[in-house]
Simulated scan of single mutants.
Amino acid sequence: MTTEISPDQATSFYKSVLSWYDEVGRKDLPWQQSKTAYRVWLSEIMLQQTQVKTVIPYYLKFLDEFPTVSELAAAPIDHVLHLWSGLGYYARARNLHRCAQIVCLEHQGAFPIGVEALSELPGIGRSTAGAIASIAQGQHAAILDGNVKRVLCRVFAVEGHPSIRATEKLLWTLAEATTPASRCADYTQAIMDLGATTCSRSKPDCERCPVKTHCIAKQQQTQTNYPNKKVKKVTPTRVSYPLLLQRPDGSVWLEKRPPTGIWGGLHCFPEVADPSELESYSALILQPPNAKELSTIEHAFSHFKLHMKPLLVSISDASHVAETSGVWYHPAFPAQVGIARPVERILSMLFSEAPLIK
């Protein structure tokens, strides 16, 4: 494992990356057309753990709805979550909204300058701050997103999973050493592109890679060994029973979740831990409740698998639902609220219309 590189090695590395970028790098992505701090920040948050092709329509939709950070800050969180629906990792959307408000309230609508100041904002870590600082603010700053980690792990044969503190520290050292003082913005985009397109996770295109002569993994034919795999843990499975409380007009009740936790702030079905609890479900006046079990929906989180077994319960107009925080949802008149992807799937199954949420 390489722990140090010489200035000459670093220079040769970043020059190779920049030459490759000048020749074949992507330069037509939406966020590359106007490199303001707001637009770069929005793209970087959306691109966390999400592919470019998935992000582009969401990014364009957000910019159309919220052209400026002040308009995003002034928007209701439900509307922000509605536009984010389907993109996943919803804490990003909540932090996005909170960050926009802080930028407007505490920084007069202008993003603070530099990695340290940017990192103090919600949802902006060191790498995201580096991307904003280098691309939008002309600062000298390194980045270390997932794509860059993969490139550096292979080129320098870095052992250990990137989530391990010692490994991450080494990767940051390498990232800073290989980031040039000039053309930092271009290099930031180039090294991300290199990992996203050429040095891909499963089938790296090593013959077209600009740094193949530098790459220890290529020399040793161990490319797919890097980054090292994380030790797998047994993923537990949880079961939930969403209640699809449906009125005669076809609408179903969605209640708003607390602002933190899984699907925080999104609208979801109420749940019971077991079908046997249905008769005592306090929100219903229906004796006895008549439930129909629909097909199970499976959804994977990072730390557990969820099996959702929806229970369709027909209720009369006279039945009572505690309408404290929620909406009656119908596809003909969809509410402008954030809805979790599994809930979208259940709604599509219920109304036999896919997809319901655009």
Rank of each mutant, 00 (worst) to 15 (best):
V343P: 03
L174H: 02
F62R: 14
S325T: 12
S12A: 15
N228L: 13
L42K: 09
L244Q: 03
Q51W: 12
P112D: 02
Q287C: 05
E323F: 15
V313M: 06
S276Y: 12
F301L: 15
K232D: 05
H107F: 03
A110V: 05
V24Q: 11
I339V: 09
P227D: 12
P331W: 04
W253E: 14
D317A: 10
R183L: 12
Q108I: 10
Q246F: 14
I124V: 08
I77R: 02
F156T: 01
L174C: 04
A133P: 04
Y241C: 02
R183T: 07
H140Y: 06
V234I: 11
I262G: 05
T296L: 04
A110G: 05
L243I: 08
A157Q: 04
E168G: 10
V52P: 07
A166V: 13
D78I: 00
H299R: 10
L356K: 03
G265N: 05
A110S: 08
A100P: 03
E207A: 07
Q189A: 14
L47W: 00
H267W: 11
G338L: 03
P162S: 08
S85N: 04
I102C: 11
V211W: 12
S134V: 07
A318N: 15
R345D: 15
T11W: 04
E279T: 10
P342Q: 00
T54F: 11
A141L: 08
D8P: 07
E255W: 07
P122S: 06
H79S: 11
S70I: 07
G86Q: 05
K358L: 09
V69L: 04
Q221D: 13
V211M: 13
S280T: 07
S352L: 09
S316R: 09
V17L: 05
Y21K: 01
S200Y: 07
A300I: 06
K305Y: 06
Q48L: 08
W41T: 04
R94L: 01
P342W: 00
I216A: 14
C268L: 15
D22F: 09
S348I: 07
P67I: 02
F304K: 13
F13H: 02
A141T: 14
V103Y: 00
V211D: 08
M192W: 14
L347G: 00
E4N: 05
L29F: 01
L294P: 15
